[in-house]
Structures are given as C-alpha cells and as structure tokens.
Write a protein that binds this DNA or RNA. Structure first.
Lengths: 224, 224
DNA sequence: CCTACCGATCGGTAGG
DNA sequence: CCTACCGATCGGTAGG
C-alpha cells in the first residue's frame, strides 16, 4: 500500500464522522450524538469512532468547531469581499439570512441550537459555544465601529446594541423558519437588520401581501 | 382516612412530579427528563411516575403545558391590569424582561429552550410548542392592532414586524443572560423593545457605563 | 481499526 | 402505588 494511504484515509474517515455528527447534532442536539449510532451510520465499530476522539465530549467539541467553520465560511468569509464598515455589515446580513433560508444545517442554525442546549450546562462545550458567540458579537461590533469611523453611521450608534439586535433578528428568523415553517421570518429579519443599519429597503423579497407604505426612517440603535 | 385523601394526594404527587420535571427540562431539555431520574428525585418508583402520564411523551406534553402556564402567569396575566394597546404592550415588555432577569426557570426561558430543542423533531410536542409560539405572536399582534386603533401607534406599523422584533429581543436577552452570563442583555432588550414601540427610554437601568447621548427617535417597524 | 465485553441507564410492561 | 423484570442502548475499556 502507498505510504500515505493510512494517513489520508484516517483524515477522510474523520471528516465523514464529523459530517454525520453535524447532521445529527443540528436536529437532535450535541447531546443526541451517540457513539453507537454514529458508528452504525458511518459503518464503523464504536471503538473505531471513539478512538478518533477519545471521549464523547471531545467529539462534541470537534463537531462544534467544524460547525463554526461552516458558519464562518458561509457568512463571514464571503463578506470580506466588501470593505470594512457599513458595506461589510450589509453583506454579512445578506449572507446570514441566506444561510438561514437555505437551511445549511438540516436542523437550522447549529450555533443557536447549541447555545440553547448548553446555556446552563457548565463545562468545556459551554465555554466553546460562549466563546464563539462572544467572538461573533465582537466582530459585528468592530464593523459598526468601522462604519462610524468611516462616517457611514452616526456616532450615536451603540455598537453593542447594533450587534445585539442583528443577532436577535437572526435567532428570530431561525425560529420562524424552523419551528413554524414560516418563510416570512427571513424577510422580517432582513427588513429589521437593514433598518437597524439605517439602510433602505432593497428590492422586494417574497414577503407579506400587505399594502406597502413609503419606507420609514432608519432605526437608530443609539447610545443611552 | 378521609374520602378525598387519595384524590388530593394524587394531585399533589402529580404537581410534585411536574415541578421537578420543569426544573430538569429547563436545564437539560425536555428529552433530558428521564423517568428513572424523576422517580428518584421525587422518591417514587419508576412505575409510579410513569403510571401518572402513560408515556414519556405525555409527560413531556404535560410539563410543557405547566411551563406555559407559568409564562402566562408571569408575563401575560399581570399585563391585563393595563388597558389594551400600547400601555399593555409596555407592561408586557416590562414583565417579560423581569421574567428573564429573575430566572423564573433555572435554565432560562423554558419556551425558547423547548423551541430550539424540538424545532426539527416532528410530533405532538413540536406541535404544542409551535402552537404556543404562534398564539403568543398573535397575542402581541392583537395588542399592536389595538394600539393602532387607539391612535397610539401610526398605521404604518406592521403588527407582525413588531411582534417578530419583540420576540427576537427576548430571545437575545435570554441568550445573553444564560449563555454569556451578561446582565447587560436585559437592558439591551429593554431599550430595543421600547424603541420598537416608540416609547421613551425610562429611568436608567443598570446598563453600560458609556456616556449617554440624548435619546433617539422611535424606531418604526413599518409595513413594507 | 476490530470483537467482545463492562456496568449503568433508558422507556416501558407484568402482575399484584 | 409497588417489585421485578424486559430488551435496547448508553459511554467507555480490554486486548489484540
């Protein structure tokens, strides 16, 4: 056999395990990923699966990390094509809504689900989720500050308030789409995100059939 | 023994089981409520616990229903003292934030947790959660319509958009408080809720130490 | 990576 | 409401 075969195969096997774990966890939760079921799904023995990670908790951490990588690749990285500040924030919102609408994870936003599941369970998985969330909020806040420095947003805007609201709208959209199966959630969140950023409403998306009024003024998330 | 004793005891026992199930479920999720653990916690046999409900799923439904009753008693019922429309909406927001801040459930908002846990698991528990969420959104929308009819809000306000945003802010506050342990989430949500309703900022709550600017204009959640 | 196994716990049932 | 039990599955280990 080729000298690299076992290493390459091992990496491939690991990726297959993680990919399946992400699918299961996005629907059943990270705690719902059981080693026996995972082994049967990827046609391996339990010991074979567990051997890659050591413990279930390590498997959960690696699964979470891979899911965060997907979120980053879907929402953050494509937004780097836009310049820092308001245009990048607008790009993030577009990609974020698209990520939720397309159902990148079968069970809806993985990070929201993991956040709810582990918000009161102490331990390394909780810490990893909280760190990822804090990092994302800080990233959004940094872009708001850049927009202020660019003169695109008034100095009255509070970066923490804007980040809080954008994140809240994304969670609301995820709930509408996943729990209620209500596609209007994406448009409601999209409108709200653009309003928080003081951006005009874009060409109409699929939304309610209600009569439209002229658009309102931007909604400032001001400092207190 | 008194003729009513067994019935009263049975009811009391049932309440003890449900009360414990709510505590467990708010931290570990509804799926994390196991009959054996519940039995041990309330000092009964597994068969004794299960006999009350028949199946685990029925126990989950009854636990959910009891949690919804608590939410209603904490947030909705005290708001009925305010007249329909804007003043009732303001009261709902106050009680909602207070409910989240006080940690009425040990694991944070039970309904948000259950919504995340069951958003992609079909079945009667999913339906019960979705029904409860739809009812709550419809309740908020009805109050927005009343506020419009009262002339307290402009006809440009979209009731569905307002309800969506209020709910999103509550979820954001819950995440900040539970996942991050960040008490500022309550003030951020409170400010955002009042802004959506066009209400002035109230006397300062415990919030950030940042310098304050004069308050901004109300944030209209207008029809498209 | 495998087979074979560990003790613990799961939801649920039989029989009283 | 109890004891006693069912088959299934859990996370994890021994030994190779």
């Amino acid at each position: 056999m080729s000298p690299r075969r076992s290493t390459a195969d091992a990496e491939h096997t690991r990726e297959r395990i993680i990919a399946r774990a992400i699918e299961i966890a996005s629907v059943e939760g990270l705690e719902g990923v059981s080693i026996g079921r995972l082994a049967s799904d990827v046609q391996m023995s339990k010991a074979g699966v567990l051997g890659r990670f050591g413990t279930k908790e390590a498997l959960q951490r690696d699964t979470l990390e891979a899911a965060i990588d997907i979120f980053r690749a879907e929402v953050w990285e494509p937004s780097l094509l836009a310049p820092p500040g308001l245009r990048r924030l607008a790009a993030i919102c577009e990609h974020w809504i698209s990520y939720l609408e397309r159902g990148v994870f079968p069970g809806g936003c993985f990070l929201t689900a993991a956040s709810c599941e582990f918000d009161d369970r102490p331990g390394p998985v909780h810490e990893a989720i909280a760190d990822a969330h804090r990092l994302w909020l800080a990233t959004l806040e940094a872009e708001v500050r850049a927009a202020i420095d660019n003169g695109e947003l008034s100095r009255d805007y509070d970066p923490a308030a804007v980040a809080f609201r954008l994140n809240a709208y994304a969670m609301g959209a995820n709930q509408a789409l996943q729990l209620l199966g209500d596609a209007r959630g994406a448009a409601l969140a999209h409108d709200a995100m653009r309003e928080v950023l003081g951006l005009p409403r874009p060409r109409r998306r699929r939304a309610t059939a209600k009569p439209r009024k002229p658009r309102g003024a931007a909604a400032p998330a001001r400092r207190r």
